[in-house]
């Protein structure tokens, strides 16, 4: 779902960059000394996760897991996913340079919004309930991401509307899969390290327990 250079109109590119800068600034404000290593290592984890391919029908898709990133990282998902996109663009040639801002917003903003919407459910004492809400957040963030990509394309020109619609429909199975995976991941984290689910939602400096 990377958008490439040259496809979008200038106002869309500029607005995307401004929004991304705002989100990144919000995320950076939550990064204190104690949580910087955790943010970096988790950001690396989501980078690695995005290289995992899972089977879907006769083909396979790579994971995005932005819903889970939103649940675990909160607003820090913005700078973390931005870093991932920069590395992918520069070293893998995926995506583009002028569209980095737009790509960051279309991936990170849905992640943050979906996680905020499902925040209560994900931290529910019952792991099963939490898993259902996690799955919802995972599917919702992919739905919002494809909708955002479609919107960005549509804003750049009427000619993109059919392509935008197709992008959305083509991602319906991806939503289902990401939802299932996120639900399972939240279930496991809930059982093993529940504090991971609220690590970056605490605003102040958090003392280390262990």
């Amino acid at each position: 779902m990377h958008i490439v250079d040259g496809a979008l109109s200038t106002p869309v590119v500029v607005a995307g960059a401004a929004l991304a800068a705002g989100g990144i600034a919000l995320g950076l404000r939550r990064l204190d000394m104690d949580r910087m290593p955790a943010a970096g290592v988790l950001s690396a984890t989501f980078f690695v996760a995005s290289l995992i391919h899972v089977p879907i029908g006769p083909s396979s898709v790579h994971l995005i897991m932005n819903g889970l990133a939103g649940i675990v990282l909160g607003w820090v998902a913005f700078p973390a996913l931005f870093v991932g996109l920069v590395l992918q663009a520069v070293f893998f040639g995926f995506g583009g340079l002028t569209v980095l801002g737009v790509n960051t917003v279309t991936i990170a903003l849905p992640a943050v919004l979906a996680a905020l919407a499902c925040r209560r459910g994900v931290t529910h004492p019952d792991a099963r309930v939490a898993a259902v809400w996690g799955g919802l957040a995972g599917a919702l963030s992919i739905a919002l991401t494809t909708a955002a990509v479609a919107l960005v394309l549509t804003l750049s020109g009427e000619a993109f509307v059919p392509a935008a619609r197709l992008v959305f429909v083509a991602h319906l199975p991806v939503m289902a899969i990401e939802g299932l995976l996120t639900a399972a991941a939240v279930f496991l984290i809930h059982r093993v390290r529940p504090d991971l689910l609220g690590l970056f939602t605490r605003p102040a400096v958090a003392g280390e327990g262990a």
Binding site: A38, V41, L42, A44, T45, V48, A49, I52, V54, L63, M65, L68, V72, L180, L181, T182, A183, A184, A185, V186, F187, L188, I189, V192, R193, L196, L199
Partner: peptide
């Protein structure tokens, strides 16, 4: 795969 990603995050933390 979901457990795999979850476990990866736990180990990362």
């Amino acid at each position: 795969f979901g457990y795999l990603v979850g476990m990866l995050l736990v180990r990362a933390l």
